Every structure is written in C-alpha cells, then in structure tokens.
Simulated scan of single mutants.
Amino acid sequence: MERSKTIHWQDPAEGATKAKQKSGLDYLQAMNNGEIPLPPLLHTLDFSVESMTPGVAVFSFMPQEFHYNPIGSVHGGVITAILDSAMGCSLHTQLPAGTGYTTLELKVNFLKAVTIKTGRLRGTGKVIFSGGRTALTEAQLIDDNGMLYAHAVSTCLILQPK
C-alpha cells in the first residue's frame, strides 16, 4: 500500500535574517513560540522543539515509517539530524546577537535500533565547553523510560561577527 506525506513550510531566509538580530536563546525561544518560522528540516523529519534553556536544547520525534532505511529501522541520518540539532542549538542558546556557529566535527554512537515500536524519543543537547573560537557539545537520544539509543559529540566553530 502506498503512503504519502505532505509538508508545508515558510521561507527559511526570514528566520535566518532574524537570527542575527537576537541573542541565540531569544531567537530559539521566539522560534519555539511561533514568532519566527521553524526551519524546514523540522517539518521534513517531523521533529518537535521541546525546550531551550541556556546551554541545553531538547528536540523530540516519534519514529515513523518515512524515517526508515531499507532494513526496517530508523535511518542513522535521522538520528544524527536530531542529535546534531540538539547539540547545535544548545550552543546557540549561549551566543550573543550576531554570533553564529557551524559544526566542524560530529561523531555518533548508535547503541540500540529505533523502530516505530520504540515510541517518542528525545534528543537532549548540552554544551560541555565553549571558548572563544570553538565549542564542544554532546547529545543523548533517550526514550520515555530512560533507555539510551544513541550518543553524540560535536566540535563547533564559533563565528564571530565581522
């Protein structure tokens, strides 16, 4: 049986422009409150923003068939995307207006298969260290019972305004 999914989103350039005018935490909270459009990736992968606090970002998703790889489990790229989002946004919550970041390096450990039977998963990202030019972040993907499915670490480059 064929399935389908329809996705709607708003112009991502609008949000990107506003990102430069607010502190990272204010920007992400405005996005979470619906004042700024969510990035298309969240709609595409059906991720939700749960919370943004200084140094911590939490995303969640319910595994669906459209997340599957050819062997019947959630694709590692989907898991990596939610962990990368959580890690990057955890850093973004600590940045002043006009300062950006980009991922330099990302490592993910996949610890347990994810399927539609797994239930809702939360990716919680935290800043481990933030310096003048680089930052180290980590994230965990955990179910409602506290079971760990994946762990990631990332090194980010902090982009100072010119």
Rank of each mutant, 00 (worst) to 15 (best):
L25Q: 07
G76S: 09
T44A: 13
L141M: 11
F66L: 09
G55S: 03
D46I: 14
D143I: 13
T102K: 08
S90K: 05
I82D: 05
T124H: 01
I158H: 03
I116S: 02
G15V: 14
D11P: 07
L136T: 12
T99V: 15
V153N: 07
M87W: 08
E50V: 15
M1N: 01
Q29H: 03
E35R: 07
Y101F: 15
M87P: 04
L83S: 02
A135V: 13
G88Y: 04
S51M: 08
A135M: 08
G24E: 05
D144A: 13
K162E: 11
T124L: 06
T17R: 15
T17Y: 06
E138W: 06
A86Q: 06
T155V: 14
F66E: 06
K5C: 03
T118Q: 01
P63N: 09
L41I: 15
Y27H: 13
T93W: 05
S85P: 00
Y27W: 14
I79P: 00
H75Q: 13
V74W: 00
K117C: 04
T93Q: 08
F47H: 06
H8N: 11
L104A: 14
T115F: 00
R120C: 12
D46K: 10
A86N: 07
L25N: 04
A152R: 03
L157W: 08
G125R: 09
P70H: 05
F129C: 05
F59I: 12
N69L: 11
V58E: 10
T155S: 12
P161R: 09
G24M: 13
A152K: 02
L83R: 00
Q21R: 11
T118I: 11
L25A: 03
D26C: 07
I7W: 06
G76R: 03
F110R: 00
M52C: 07
Y27P: 05
T44W: 09
I71D: 00
W9F: 15
S23R: 02
L38A: 10
T124K: 12
L106P: 02
T137G: 00
V56K: 09
W9G: 04
S48Q: 14
Q94G: 08
Q29E: 12
H67N: 06
E50P: 04
L104F: 06
T44E: 06
K18L: 15
L91N: 04
S154A: 14
G15C: 12
M62D: 09
F66I: 11
L42P: 03
Q160T: 15
I36W: 04
G34W: 05
A16D: 05
F66P: 01
L157V: 08
M87I: 13
A30R: 02
F59G: 00
C156W: 10
T103H: 01
V56T: 14
G34R: 08
T155Y: 04
M52A: 09
L148C: 04
E35M: 10
D11A: 10
L111T: 08
L91D: 04
